[in-house]
Simulated assay, not measured.
Amino acid sequence: MSITVLKPGLCTSLQDRGRFGYQHLGVSPSGAMDELAHRMANLLVGNTQDYASLEITLQGPTLRFEQACLFALCGADLQARLNDQAIPSKRPILALPGSTLSFKGRLSGMRAYLAVHGGFAVEPVLGSQSTLLRSKFGGWQGRKLERDDQVPVRTPLHLTPGSQQQLEEFLGAERIYMPAALNPAARDQIRLIPGEHLGLFAASSQQRLFGQNYRIATSSERMGYRLEGKPLFRQHDLELLSAPTSFGTVQVPNDGQPIILMADRQTTGGYAKIGQIAAVDLPQLAQLLPGTNVSFELIRAEQAAQLDQQRESALQRLSSSLESLRAQLSKLTGP
């Protein structure tokens, strides 16, 4: 069973939750930029949250399902259409053999995530199916999808006319319980935890960090978001040791313009770490387009941890509510 790429779109790549344990060897974790959308899409098709999904950036591909497949889309609204009929996001959708998925155009957000029941049959590299595009390994042949690719799906659905009707009726009647924490309203400000080097910056620069709007530079991408605004200055020109980086670390190079490290970040960095984006706000940040504005709100680490735990609890509740879907699908899969 496979999905055939008729048109590749702008940038569509396989991503999971990341490749961890190899930063000391210089290997970036990579993974989904909007991890929340990625995890939700997998839950909605009966997977665990660790399966890879297709990360679709801005301009979606055109894909043909060669066999019956259950899929879900979360994240950006790119106006998905199945056989030229509009379909909703955040719901499991049944695609029959020969069905074509396309995208009319962006309405909101930047990245959508397509998960399929059973995941993609792609061999992991260093324990992950994520694509590290700069290094050209992992995922689907170490690259973004191209025309005529046939990406295999691991677990086909075995449908008879009777079981197809039964599954369609089940999906039509299934009510998806979506906790509020998984559908938050967009915030005016991204929450930022003070970094270990915040005190190295002049008081005026610390105030400026939380008092001005930054523009996300057009050069921003999966490795990092470069911000443009009034520069931040350190009080003392001290040499800093290189240290491990993490998703959402805000570094300030010598030009005073902050850089937010994203999924494909470098493994270590020697610039001053002025702050850390709260994990709960990383999905919103990942959906912002270059050229848009962003500003920051101060938050304590304890508050950020509590918000993250609330989101994890909400994901667990969503998973529990989908037990009947998983039971239904187990009847339709096999070797």
Rank of each mutant, 00 (worst) to 15 (best):
A185N: 13
L54A: 07
R106I: 05
M33I: 03
L157T: 04
A121M: 10
G224T: 02
G334P: 03
L182D: 07
D149W: 12
A279Q: 13
A180S: 15
R326N: 00
R134Q: 11
Q150P: 06
A305R: 15
Q328L: 00
H24I: 02
K273Q: 11
G195D: 07
D16I: 03
V5A: 04
E302K: 14
M1G: 11
H236N: 08
G162Y: 08
P244H: 10
Y177L: 15
L82K: 12
G60L: 01
G127D: 04
L171V: 04
G139N: 06
S53I: 00
A263Y: 04
E169A: 15
G105M: 12
R226I: 01
G224P: 10
S246P: 11
K331S: 07
G211T: 06
S204K: 14
R311V: 05
A41K: 01
R311G: 02
T333C: 02
A272Y: 07
A286D: 10
G269M: 13
L126M: 15
I277D: 07
A217H: 15
I3W: 10
A181P: 08
A80W: 00
I260Y: 05
R234I: 01
S219I: 05
I299M: 12
S219F: 01
A272G: 06
S319A: 14
R143S: 08
L285P: 14
F103M: 03
L10E: 06
I260A: 10
T249R: 08
H24D: 11
A202W: 13
R175K: 15
R187G: 07
L182M: 08
L157G: 03
A279D: 08
R208G: 00
F71V: 01
W140Q: 05
P92H: 03
A186T: 10
K7Y: 12
L315Y: 01
V250K: 05
Q212K: 08
Q212Y: 01
A278C: 03
T218M: 12
E146I: 07
C11G: 01
G270D: 00
A243P: 14
I176S: 03
I259K: 04
A278H: 07
G119I: 02
R154V: 00
A202S: 15
D188I: 06
A121G: 09
D308P: 00
G270W: 07
E123Q: 13
F210Q: 05
Q79R: 12
L25K: 08
D281F: 05
V151P: 12
M1D: 10
G195Y: 09
V27C: 10
P161E: 11
L329F: 00
N254V: 10
F247V: 07
T131C: 08
F201H: 05
Q59A: 09
R215M: 06
A72L: 07
V280S: 14
D77R: 10
R134F: 12
S242Q: 04
L298D: 05
E302F: 01
T292A: 13
P194D: 04
E302I: 09
I87Y: 06
L332K: 00
G46Q: 01
V250T: 06
